[in-house]
């Protein structure tokens, strides 16, 4: 199994799919990279030669931020928002949606599993 960008070991999928297993690389970037490295993006990842591998990792090193470094960057950006106590930072602190979404209902991705409140009237009871 080829190793690209540190610990990533994509399998015997087509190269352009295998590359998307790297954090920070989606389908679009993946195809762009392979084009730049002049590799046919439909060959299997295991068929990559050492030379082709080094060309890919060379391009990654030079032009893109991926994996741990990217995660750190994102974390730092959020930490900065929290630090200066701006509106977005406050939303991050409270674990609520940051981009102005409605929170009366839904917003479960940010808020996590529902916390049911005992004794709270449901819609059915209020109708009766």
């Amino acid at each position: 199994m080829p190793r690209i960008a540190g610990i990533d070991v994509p399998n015997d999928k087509q190269v352009w799919v295998a590359l998307t297993y790297i954090h920070g690389i989606g389908p679009h970037l993946s195809k762009q990279i392979l084009k730049e490295a002049q590799i046919n993006d439909t060959i299997k990842a295991k068929e990559l030669t050492d030379d082709e591998l080094s060309r890919i990792s060379g391009i990654l090193d030079r032009n893109y931020v991926v994996e741990g470094q990217l995660r750190r960057q994102v974390g730092q950006n959020i930490a900065r928002l929290k630090e200066i106590a701006c509106y977005r930072g406050l939303r991050h602190r409270r674990g609520l949606p940051v981009r102005g979404q409605s929170t009366q209902s839904n917003a479960r991705t940010r808020k996590g599993p529902r916390k049911t409140v005992a004794g709270k009237k449901g819609v059915k009871e209020m109708r009766g």
């Binding site: 200066i84 701006c86 509106y87 409140v117």
Partner: peptide
């Protein structure tokens, strides 16, 4: 104002809503 705040708007630092959590 600190250096990090450059580029944001003044209003972002003065919250307009109060919510201290639900009762009980």
């Amino acid at each position: 104002i600190t250096e990090d705040m450059v580029g944001h708007k003044l209003g972002e630092f003065s919250p307009t809503r109060t919510f201290r959590g639900h009762s009980g």
